[in-house]
């Protein structure tokens, strides 16, 4: 028996759990391109780190967040249909998410980035099966292999979170992952990395609103902003011999 958790402000604990960097879903081994950006001299200090993060959230961050919102919406709708006892219930969810996945893959030129997002998505789904067994019917319908932003949207819905929550979560993660990795990669004041995040907070919120507005949009109409250097960096990183981070 599937019960759709009621969305609302009372779900904030679930949101904190998902956005916690300590969630055991393998994300800690990644720098979201920052290691290569530093190796290439594109990021050198707190100022250039701030620029890097800002560029990221306004481009691929917004794209990812929109896909997360769209995945949340499709998952929540399928859950409602399941609860209402509709004949199909959760069954169409897999195809709906696969459609989103194809659209997101088409917006990701770098094969390395696609592989990494797929691996991170699989890890999130795998971890959630163990962490929240009640989400199993939804995760079964969603399938085990989804790009990470879509996996986040699905998991968010399964935990009763909104499209806005899913978008905010993915945007925060897009900035926090490289920010936290920076202290291992640069000689940088660890307070300065979080100062960058605080500085970006208003933009993160604003972008999350914009992304959430795409929740019900057709997959083809989701944003397709690009950050070509990130794609190049991800490819270069796969041949970087002494890397600390997997990406």
């Amino acid at each position: 028996m599937l019960t759709t958790p009621t969305p609302g402000p009372d779900r904030s604990a679930a949101l904190l759990l998902l956005s916690d960097g300590r969630l055991p879903a393998g994300g800690y081994a990644h720098s979201a391109g920052l290691e290569q950006a530093i190796a290439r001299g594109w990021v050198r200090d707190a100022t250039t780190l701030g620029d890097y993060l800002r560029g990221r959230i306004h481009t691929t961050g917004l794209v990812s967040a929109s896909f997360a919102a769209a995945a949340q919406h499709r998952t929540a709708s399928a859950m409602e249909a399941g609860d209402a006892g509709g004949t199909e219930g959760l069954a169409p969810l897999g195809a709906a998410l696969a459609g989103l996945d194809r659209e997101l893959v088409a917006r990701t030129p770098s094969p390395a980035l696609r592989r990494i997002a797929r691996d991170l998505g699989r890890m999130l789904l795998r971890a959630m099966r163990s962490i929240a067994p009640s989400t199993q019917p939804v995760l079964d319908a969603a399938g085990p292999v989804l790009q990470q932003p879509i996996a986040y949207g699905t998991v968010a819905a399964a935990l009763g979170l909104t499209a806005r929550d899913a978008a905010g979560l993915v945007l925060y993660e897009a900035a926090a992952t490289p920010a936290v990795a920076a202290v291992k990669l640069l000689s940088i004041d660890p307070f300065a990395t979080h100062r960058c995040l605080v500085g970006l907070a208003p933009e993160l919120d604003e972008l999350a609103e914009r992304a959430a507005a795409f929740a019900t949009a057709d997959a083809r109409d989701l944003p397709a902003l690009a950050a070509p250097l990130s794609d190049i960096a991800a490819e270069l990183h796969t041949n970087h011999d002494q890397r600390l981070f997997a990406s």
Partner: peptide, 16 residues
Amino acid sequence: ETGACPHTAIRDDVTM
């Protein structure tokens, strides 16, 4: 690849 934290990968976050 353990992101410079091999300890974490076998204990705190075994998902990978």
